[in-house]
Design a protein around this nucleic acid. Structure first.
Length: 275
DNA sequence: CGCCAGGCTTCTA
DNA sequence: TAGAAGCATGGC
């Protein structure tokens, strides 16, 4: 991975094919906001950064070289060979068309607790309101870092009660957030240990939490724990598969179906995504 | 007013 | 074991 430090920015070469808005602001992560000049501001694991594309590379502002190579390269899944994966997926003509038209969507490696809690909030909800509730959660219970707030830890939330979540206006999901916080903080569910389990075992652990069913569990496995073959099915993916692949997913998606899922999800979410 | 949103739990047959 | 009802909220 070639790194260039220039003009207070840290540039990683060769990842300029990433589609930032589709990766950061289309239902996978909920805390990125465009801040002008094609840059996106976000915060992860307590570190705030601005990221954008510069020519053939990705540029980061507000982080030093070490943090970019460590935290952010992992977050953007830069150690995985997407050129090879996208080439493999392109064996299917429709996948090839969606990839050609929309570029490289990367599957993020987000902090697991933030991901789990965010997708508990996502249930039967729309993306703009999910973002709103999460921003209120962070302002109320997180810690201020420059222009952003950290995502509150499970430990922090396990010490509060359902009543104090009322200002979030998150509806019936409040009790699920508290249950998840208590089970994760107590170690009844050990999120980090899920990485080395089989996908089925890891999913079963997550589903011990109230408000976590198959879909929320699969989002957590895919968007934070490195299970690229997790395939969360929501209303968009169900409809997208019925429309695009009524005979079932093509064979080329095996092992990387989570990434294919994201293209299918967006195809249905944005009706103008594919054609 | 009704319908929908990156669902889940509980009840019922 | 499958299917429906109920659950909060807000945009359209």
């Amino acid at each position: 991975m070639e790194i260039i430090v220039r003009d207070s920015g840290v540039i990683i070469e060769d990842f300029g094919n990433i589609n930032l808005p589709l990766t950061l602001d289309c239902g996978q992560a909920f805390r990125w906001n465009e801040c002008g000049d094609g840059l996106w501001r976000g915060i992860q694991r307590g570190r705030e950064v601005r990221v954008g594309k510069r020519g053939d590379g990705l540029v980061f502002y507000g982080a030093d070289r070490e943090e970019v190579c460590g935290l952010w390269a992992d977050y953007f899944d830069l150690h995985r060979d997407y050129v090879a994966i996208l080439k493999r997926l392109s064996a299917d003509a429709i996948m090839a068309e969606m990839i050609e038209k929309n570029g490289c969507i990367r599957i993020l490696n987000q902090e697991p607790w933030e991901t789990l809690c965010s997708f508990i909030i996502s249930s039967c909800n729309n993306i703009s309101r999910i973002k709103l509730i999460i921003s209120r959660l962070c302002e109320a219970f997180g810690e201020r870092v420059r222009d952003e707030y950290t995502f509150p830890t499970a430990e922090r939330l396990s010490g509060t009660d359902v009543g104090r979540l009322a200002p979030l206006r998150c509806g019936y999901r409040d009790k699920y957030i508290i249950d998840a916080a208590r089970k994760c903080a107590s170690g009844e569910v050990e999120l980090e240990s899920l990485r080395k389990m089989s996908m089925d075992d890891a999913r079963a652990q997550l589903m011990k939490i109230d408000g976590v069913g198959r879909k929320v569990a699969d989002c957590t496995l895919l968007f934070s724990l490195g299970f690229l073959d997790a395939f969360p099915v929501d209303v968009h993916v169900r409809r997208g598969v019925e429309n695009i692949y009524p005979e079932g997913l093509p064979e080329c998606t095996e092992g990387v179906s989570g990434l294919a899922q994201q293209y299918i999800f967006l195809a249905d979410l944005k009706s103008d995504f594919r054609c």
